[in-house]
């Protein structure tokens, strides 16, 4: 029992600090990627290539005045960013970061918690995240914040439906809700072709499901082209208009953590997680380490896609957003589910 506590504590603390570090540096990456796409230089003053910029920003967040408007609901105003940050930090718990390490004869799993309802846990945490934005926006007692908050909650719950439906096809193919089983299920050969061991990724059999999931992930993280909750040309800053200091920092930080976790979930569900062709040839411990590297490679690719889209596509209008969510993605994901179920049943009957 004590071994387990120590092992899990080390794992939790390392995943937690890596998540925070990545989220901090994503702010820098975002500005650099934006600069690259717009043919600018980007931040370059703090340290070589501006790499100390996030540290300066974080320091500023800590020492700014913690402003609470007089007319706001004080406790809810504080709770809003707290909930947003808390749920963002919780979702990483069920993601399998690699296979398992053998340390002095002891198998150490690289997943914090292997619960048998892994996907539902993530969906649940994402749903609680809506409360952070809703409570924060409402408690500000500012019309712009209120507009941003109700827009955000309406958008997030709408896209959650299509997201939930698109995952069902994956669950059907794996027969399990545990992310560990889903990742392990993608280690075989692609369509039985030799030399493709470790390339049996779900994206090749579920391309439609992947596209639906990706679009929903953009909407759930409130990223462009779905960043209507904070669209600055109409709503000043949306739900975080009244926030300052680290409370504002938490809202922005939560967005970057969510982006990181979404990329990890997309990689695990559709792109084989830690699997890559040739992983089965490596010795046990090297397999785990190479697996972590492969997973992070995929995650960084998807994070780049998030940024690429943000600086390429213009923002949707609200009725277009709702139209896409309810009238296109939901019927499409039901159809995708039925085609998957029909095909699998048909194949079993033969």
């Amino acid at each position: 029992m004590l071994d387990l506590i120590i092992e899990k504590s080390i794992l939790i603390l390392s995943v937690f600090s890596v998540t925070l570090l990545i989220a901090t540096y994503l702010t820098y990456t975002e500005r650099k990627v934006a600069a690259f796409l717009q043919d600018r230089i980007g931040p370059d003053r703090a340290g070589p290539f501006g790499i100390f910029q996030p540290l300066a920003d974080a320091g500023k967040m800590f020492f700014k005045e913690d402003f609470i408007p007089a007319a706001s609901a004080k406790w809810l105003f504080i709770m809003g960013p707290g909930i947003a940050m808390f749920t963002a930090c919780m979702t990483g718990a069920v993601i399998p970061w690699g296979t398992s390490l053998n340390i002095m004869g002891r198998e150490v799993s690289l997943q914090i918690a292997d619960v048998n309802i892994g996907i539902l846990y993530i969906m649940g945490m994402v749903s609680i995240g809506v409360y952070g934005i809703m409570i924060g926006g409402w408690a500000s007692n500012n019309k712009y914040s209120l507009m941003g908050a109700i827009r955000a909650s309406s958008q997030m719950i709408s896209y959650e439906l299509a997201m939930g439906l698109s995952i069902i096809s994956i669950v059907m193919m794996t027969g399990s809700l545990s992310l560990k089983d889903i990742a392990a299920g993608q280690s075989g050969q692609l369509f039985g072709i030799p030399l493709t061991t470790g390339l049996d990724w779900n994206v090749f059999v579920q391309p439609v499901g992947f596209i639906i999931f990706l679009v929903c992930a953009f909407a759930e993280t409130n990223r462009a082209p779905f960043d209507l909750p904070e669209c600055e040309s109409e709503l000043i800053g949306g739900y975080h208009t009244e926030y300052s200091s680290m409370k504002l920092g938490f809202f922005l930080f939560a967005e970057y953590i969510n982006m990181f976790i979404s990329s990890a979930v997309i990689s695990t569900l559709y792109f084989g997680g830690y699997n890559f062709p040739g992983i089965h040839l490596l010795p046990h411990n090297l397999q785990a380490i190479a697996g972590i590297a492969a997973l992070f490679g995929k995650i960084f690719f998807f994070i780049f896609v998030f940024m690429w889209v943000r600086w390429t596509l213009p923002r949707f209008r609200y009725d277009q957003l709702m139209h896409l969510g309810w009238k296109i993605l939901i019927p499409l994901s039901i159809l995708n589910m039925l085609v998957t179920a029909g095909w699998m049943t048909f194949r079993n009957l033969l």
Partner: peptide
């Protein structure tokens, strides 16, 4: 689910500490 309880403590503690500190 035990590790999730530990994760809750870590995440909750971090959020509480940082909000109080700032």
């Amino acid at each position: 689910y035990f590790p999730i309880v530990m994760q809750t403590l870590v995440a909750g503690g971090f959020v509480g500490l940082v909000l109080t500190l700032t």
